[in-house]
Design a protein around this nucleic acid. Structure first.
Lengths: 148, 148
DNA sequence: ATAGCTGCAAATCGTTTGCGCCATG
DNA sequence: CATGGCGCAAACGATTTGCAGCTAT
């Protein structure tokens, strides 16, 4: 029987090893900070938080590592509808609701969507790995705002 | 019985009226040009084409009108995975396949996905209007490239 | 008439890059 | 000690803005 650990609880050194990344202080803090930011932060937002713990860190380093993390599958890139890159920890299966009015992004558990079609035999021999579903609509707050 | 016309065939003046837009020469050409660009063009690409018919047009005007069109539902904003805005005419129901390797985007007819869950009773009182589904995977070309 | 649109140029924003120094393996 | 990562500052591309003159309704 195999021990099961999520990426959140597994020690950071091990996670880096798994993804072929060198362990550095900056990366560790970056990762820890992202664990405390459950939303879909922009690089600037992550930078602001990390800076509280490593005041000398550079925005360029944050960008470089976010990209590295995305490439290696530690982070996932999220949705469009923003002028800037948004990321989230690559954890459990979920999708997003995007308000077409205020652009807010909310998580949507995959099971709230009901049964999804199987990913097979797509045109052009495309080999599918996963869905990224955005449900576009109006969030509750904007519905209220429009009524008034 | 009601006459059915797609947005592609309906005269431009009517389309503008429907969406509360003033009719201008620039907008008409912009729209016509987009009809001949079936992919997911960037503002620069649209600009280059429009410029052939209105040499004096400004890139700023293209941006302003693309945004206006998106706001009013004439155009749809497409996927991420690009460093720039991508749009397409808001015509028939389809989604996208995005190659995680080369970032190419291919259209995917909604019926190729099979039955989708109904959009109702989402958490937080979110009022859904439509899906935007990206199927992430590896395109045929990149599969070949990897094998070699 | 008048509100809205246009082109222009400058400004801004998010992101990337080159490079000399430093840390990790 | 050899790679690879870091911080800095400059560069860059994409997009936005302010404004003065023109256009559609």
């Amino acid at each position: 029987m195999q021990t099961f650990q999520t990426e959140e609880t597994r020690p950071f050194r091990e996670l880096c090893a798994d993804h072929g990344l060198t362990v550095t202080h900056q990366r560790q803090v970056l990762y820890e900070v992202m664990q405390t930011m459950p939303g879909h932060p922009s690089p600037e937002e992550v930078y602001a938080r990390v800076k509280r713990r490593i005041p000398a860190i550079s925005l360029a380093t944050v960008y470089k590592n976010i990209h590295l993390f995305v490439e290696r599958g530690v982070l996932k890139e999220v949705s469009m509808h923003h002028g800037s890159l948004r990321v989230e920890l690559n954890s459990h299966l979920h999708h997003h609701m995007v308000c077409s009015h205020c652009k807010a992004i909310t998580d949507l558990d995959e099971k709230d969507l009901g049964e999804l079609p199987a990913l097979q035999s797509l045109p052009g021999g495309f080999q599918a790995e996963r869905y990224a579903i955005d449900v576009i609509g109006i969030c509750a707050a904007c519905q209220k705002a429009k009524r008034s």
